[in-house]
Design a protein around this nucleic acid. Sequence first.
DNA 1: ACGTAAAATCGTAATTTTACGATAAAATAG
DNA 2: CTATTTTATCGTAAAATTACGATTTTACGT
Lengths: 120, 120
Amino acid sequence: MNAAMKDSPATQGMNREELRLAAMLKALGNPIRFRMMQYLAENRMCITGDIVAFTSLAQSTVSQHLKVLREAGLIEGEVEGPATCYCISAEGLRFLKSKISQWLPGCCEPDSDAGTSSCC
Amino acid sequence: MNAAMKDSPATQGMNREELRLAAMLKALGNPIRFRMMQYLAENRMCITGDIVAFTSLAQSTVSQHLKVLREAGLIEGEVEGPATCYCISAEGLRFLKSKISQWLPGCCEPDSDAGTSSCC
DNA sequence: ACGTAAAATCGTAATTTTACGATAAAATAG
DNA sequence: CTATTTTATCGTAAAATTACGATTTTACGT
């Protein structure tokens, strides 16, 4: 599936916001990208090279992962001389947290019998 | 990556809860599984066959997707006669929402200049 | 025990993702 | 202008995911 999460049998009937949320979840579903986000959050901002050193992956691979995160709206990059400076997208992260907190309302109530909740 | 999200270069340095969160995000990163969750939430509970009809995928494919969601702790299945009845895991969803809301604290503040936030 | 219904698992093909090296592009320094 | 530094993009191989049909398992009627 492309980062744009274009229309397909799987995405039929999803509105724009749901599609964006799904794209974010897909981007974060990769543990390397998940950790990149954490690293970026801890360091506030950094350039590609910092993340390459952190992950010990090839530079081209890191660049691809950064692209996925960027296209999902989770990070923002800004050319800073020859380098590119990345940081968490506050708007994106707010969107993610907001949508997740509202997602599937009324499904989080603890079951009467704690532990193994019987659904039937 | 397996549903168990076993240790690998990518998951080094992640604790158990982070691994569980990452596994959930990975499971939800697939738009079909994302929609299955929504369908399940709307219908409160249903059997595999209902979801097969909803998705118009092969029964074996749906069964695989359900397994991924189950192993991520997002749904629960219970044998009910010859069928299996599935429902959202309240505990799992609570875990997801809780962890996401706490994730990367301090990264959601709106930037001084709304819109294009400059990170450098 | 036999047949039916529903779901899980198996084996495998098609697609997608991930990763890498090589190359190209952009900015700066000399 | 040339060399250097940093990153992005391209082409491609390896790995993982997704999907399907066929088979097996499980539970229930008769």
